[in-house]
Design a protein around this nucleic acid. Structure first.
Lengths: 359, 359
DNA sequence: GTGAAAGCGCTAACAT
DNA sequence: ATGTTAGCGCTTTCAC
């Protein structure tokens, strides 16, 4: 089984008794080939099992039909959904998606970007949070003329196409729902403050509270890093402060909190564990709303009320826009697209002490 | 900002006043360049921001330094871990990993393989279950001489390097632990029967039971598709059969089952939800052991006892072997490597009716 | 230690 | 409708 050198376009041409060019035309589905020749060439191609070299084609045509996708974390449901959407859309347009995750170390990003540009990706999709302090490499990339689209990521001072979810509205949905149920003291566990989505969800929380005449009390807020464990720990902290269970434990706060908005489902599940350990019942003693609608939310104990984000669609749309920018650079114009979230009510929430009449 | 054509090796050579080859030598860290020339060329490279084209290098050298990885599902923790391990190892050896998931449709695999081989990956890693009926394209791939390593996947009749986890032992660990706790009627929810890991875990279950003088009772076994929901449904089915709660509900079965081995954590979490809904307490009424040790297992209600698999290491080792096969094809020799599992005891299990003295 | 020439497998641009 | 020529940006081979 000697791994004989791969079959090339030359051999196909020779075998078919035509020129290389003609084979190339068949390969690229050009119209200017006689049906007969086309058929013959195609037959030889399948008979020989010929596979055109994407490398050679890329070099000659300066088109690789591949896109790069840079993400932070493959094991995060959020990004996983974006990737799945991007994959599907790329495939549909016959593009190849090169995935790169900076997983362990965000400092790898410039290095990763290099790997992608060296491989001549025609456009790059960012699916990661806006949190890195040093974005020089990105600004440089943008000025290079390479089409770039991002999801959930904004670059200050740069016009960038962004497809994202309306996080302000999502935060407001979660909070308003709790207010409507009659909860007036609503705690929050947020994600890392460097993420734009965290700032936005927090803003939604604030807006909803203010619309109800309540001002945001920072003593009712803690921060996690999105993990189950951090949600557990943040909840413990909140419990120790006494704001959740002890009446008037905090100065000026007459009632203990009866509800929580937690900015992702994993932290919410971790927090519910801490609540159970503290002997609190959900939703009888305290209502909990999460964010994301991960698959496990439905099977949490109790099933988690949460805010669903259309991340698959975000990936799809972002990729569509990227391909458009690649194929029609002249029509390109940076834009921001915001998709809407949806509240999914399950069993971790119930009526609070001051139920309001529904509007 | 006219996207002026990229800088090429020619421009670097010209600017440095040397020939293209010399630049190439510097690029490839060849020893036969005078330190002075090397320094000068390097300076020009950084000054110009020159990036060698991986495409052109690949074409000329017939080496792309890239590997392909085919997986079934990005959102599965199991595969995600393998990918992370593979990524890290590939990067360490300066290889680029091209990821492909056949997500939606396993029939896409030949197509995907084509995309990878056309891009001249030097080796391919399979991280997907052994379940497809039609593997002709794989046999063909193997006979092509392309190095292939697989995790958790076996191809009948073909010598293939496989890195996997000892699933027989894992299934035995879970079952033996329950037996040691004193459970004598142990139900099981298994994954799809086309997966080798399912066959093996089931075999471990059988062996452990037989060692305790119990024979496998198929009436105590149902099947799921690994999802939370399927675990939930499988549990409902088991409950309806009566084997779990009603004494002697099944002919010849004097006692109701007090324990369950569930072949992955997600199904276990779904199953626990069904048990709760049926009013059963875990572990007081019934003990549950899962498999995988996914992050959420620790935060399930109750925290799940499970079998941990070193999937990250599986990915690392598989990639290391693949790179070895790529770089030293003559030393290559197909082998099978099995890594060991580890029982993680949490709170979903407790002593059963007939506790045995620990050995 | 360095350079010149040839070519990797394909497509673009021009022929005919 | 088909063929010819000249690259794409690099490495390989062989010369000096």
């Amino acid at each position: 089984m000697t791994a004989s050198r791969q079959i090339t376009i030359n051999q196909v041409a020779q075998e078919a008794g035509v020129s290389v060019q003609t084979v190339s035309r068949v390969l690229n589905e050009r119209p200017d080939v006689s049906p007969e020749t086309r058929r013959k060439v195609q037959e030889i191609i399948t008979r020989l099992g010929y596979q055109p070299s994407a490398i050679a084609r890329g070099l000659a045509s300066r088109r690789t039909r591949s896109l790069g996708l840079i993400t932070a974390d493959f094991s995060d449901y959020f990004f996983t959904q974006v990737i799945a959407g991007a994959e599907q859309e790329a495939r549909k347009h016959d593009y190849f998606l090169m995935l790169g995750s900076t997983e362990r170390n965000p400092k790898d990003e410039p290095e990763y970007l290099r790997l992608l540009t060296q491989r001549h990706v025609e456009g790059i999709l960012f699916a990661r949070p806006s949190s890195e302090p040093d974005e020089k490499h990105l600004v440089k990339l943008l000025h290079t003329g390479t089409p770039v689209v991002s999801t959930a990521y904004y670059l200050e001072g740069e016009a960038l196409t962004v497809v994202d979810v309306n996080n302000v509205e999502g935060g407001r949905q979660a909070t308003s729902y709790l207010l409507e149920l009659g909860h007036t003291c609503i705690g929050m566990i947020r994600g890392p403050s460097s993420w734009k989505s965290v700032i936005d969800r927090t803003q939604g929380y604030r807006l909803a509270l203010e619309a109800a005449g309540i001002s945001l009390d920072p003593r009712l807020v803690t921060e996690g890093d999105w993990s189950y464990r951090s949600g557990y720990q943040a909840m413990r902290e909140l419990l120790e402060r006494g704001s959740i269970i002890r009446k008037g434990a905090l100065q000026d706060q007459p009632d203990p909190c009866t509800a929580l908005f937690i900015q992702n489902d994993r932290m919410a599940i971790g927090a519910m564990r801490a609540l159970h350990e503290a002997g609190l019942r959900i939703p009888e003693d305290i209502s909990v709303v999460g964010y994301d609608d991960v698959p496990e939310a439905e099977f949490a104990e109790p099933p988690l009320t949460t805010v669903r984000q259309p991340m698959f669609e975000v990936g799809e749309i972002a990729t569509r826009l990227l391909i458009q920018a690649v194929e029609h650079p002249d029509d390109y114009c940076p834009q921001e697209l915001l998709l809407e979230t949806e509240l999914v009510v399950r069993h971790s929430t119930k009526k609070g002490p001051n139920p309001q009449p529904l509007p």
